[in-house]
Simulated assay, not measured.
Amino acid sequence: MSTAARNGWWAGPIPTVVVPLAVGAFTVVGTFRAAEDQPFARPLDALGVALLLMGAAALVVRHRHPAAALGTAAVAAWVYLALAYPYGPVFLAGLVALCSAVLSGHRRSAYLLTGAAFVALLVLHLLRYPGEPPPLFGAGGWLSSLAVVIAVCEWWRARRERLAQVQLAQEEAERRRSSEERLQIARDLHDSLGHHVSLINVQAGVALHLMDDDPEQARSALAAIKASSGELLREMRATLGVLRGVDEGPPRAPVAGLARLDDLLAENRAAGLPVDLEVTGPRRDLPPSVDQAAYRIVQESLTNVRKHAGPTARATVLLGYADDGVSIRIDDDGRGVPASAEPGGGSGLPGMRERATALGGTLSAGPRPGGGFRVEARLPAPDRAPSTGVSPQA
């Protein structure tokens, strides 16, 4: 919200002077015109004009000192009337000061000063006309006018506060979305780096071990390293390009999803991890967020299997398609070391759980019956439209 909006009506440097000048000019001209019909009033001289301008001049500080501006305008009007000068728009400066005080949040002082000024004017009238009855009709009219002015000011103040709250909520939602996007990018980078670096490490070990005895196998391992490092660079460029906004055209490589599951399983098999795939239910298109989360969960789970399950472990990936979502289960028959036991407190398992939770799903992980480790997730994805006929390849 701008400074002018926070400070209230007309808070800029130019309006701060323009409004008092306009109020002063209107008050003086209007009072001179009204004095023509008041022959028994005191002629409007320099002192009277000075008192009228005094109230208008107090409006210059109405934003910094709203109570002082209102009090000064009220005192100037009371002295003006006490000297028997003619009636006119002498209360205009006080009304503007009242509105500024209410809109700036100084409601209590504004109402106290306004009440005191009203009582003082009523006492002044009784002192000037002691033989007349109290001016109940006139006082009621002034009270009604004040009530209308106050009601309008309160409505405007409440409206401004609602608009400010809406804007703050929008800014907070934008910050939350940005934070969630950064967290999503961090998860993607973690999963991609963990998966590909792990593959590169395994294949590099194979190449070094077979460099002299089996050059052909070592060459295959080096080719796998090149392919995995190239894929890692492409994924990092695509992910970081979202932050930098430099990608002008559509991505050349497919977005991570279950359509790339065969490639993922092939990479793990080439790295020495036997992986089987089982699919239940008719395959169907999933929302992009669910499709990517499912792929990342499988990717990170297999990375953890390679790290913790041992060299002889096998893994099985089970995908279950249903009308209301997709279930994912990754089993291995290794040592059963949980992903949370990663050196340095790895974020693989918490990241997978956060992915599932963000989509309204669930994820559990732990030792499975018979030995080994199991990661099981359920991601909701209601089938709201008929299948397009293009099924993601597992």
Rank of each mutant, 00 (worst) to 15 (best):
R128K: 09
V28Y: 08
A309L: 05
A173H: 08
V166H: 08
T239K: 06
A116C: 03
V152D: 14
S192M: 02
G257W: 01
P39Q: 12
T72V: 15
T280P: 09
V152E: 12
L21Y: 09
M1S: 14
P13R: 04
R283K: 07
R157L: 13
G141M: 10
P380D: 00
P386C: 09
G205F: 02
P251E: 11
S2T: 08
R108C: 13
L122H: 05
A169W: 07
R160W: 00
A116V: 01
L222Q: 03
Y80P: 06
R368N: 06
L47C: 06
P287K: 07
W155I: 13
Y87S: 12
R353Y: 03
I150C: 15
G360T: 01
V123R: 00
A4E: 13
S192T: 10
D191V: 10
A116S: 03
V375W: 05
N304G: 13
V375I: 15
P215K: 00
Y321R: 12
A139I: 01
P254G: 11
V255D: 08
V375G: 10
L121S: 10
G194S: 11
A117T: 05
S2G: 10
G140W: 08
H195Q: 10
A221Y: 00
A227F: 13
P311T: 13
V337M: 12
K226R: 15
S387N: 09
R296L: 07
V275F: 02
I150W: 14
H125V: 02
A116H: 02
A5R: 15
L222S: 06
L233N: 14
R353W: 04
W142N: 14
P20F: 08
M1N: 11
L258C: 03
P39S: 12
L95A: 14
V123C: 01
H190E: 12
L112S: 14
T303H: 03
S179Y: 14
R42C: 04
E216G: 08
P287S: 03
G281K: 12
P386W: 10
G325V: 07
G346K: 01
G230Y: 11
N7Y: 12
P86Q: 00
G131Y: 03
Y129C: 05
A76I: 07
P380W: 04
G257L: 01
Q217C: 06
V206F: 00
R6T: 11
A97Q: 05
A50L: 11
E342F: 04
P251I: 12
S387P: 06
M352V: 04
R159W: 00
T72R: 04
Y111P: 09
L95E: 05
R182F: 12
V337A: 07
V298Q: 10
R234Q: 15
E161K: 13
F137V: 15
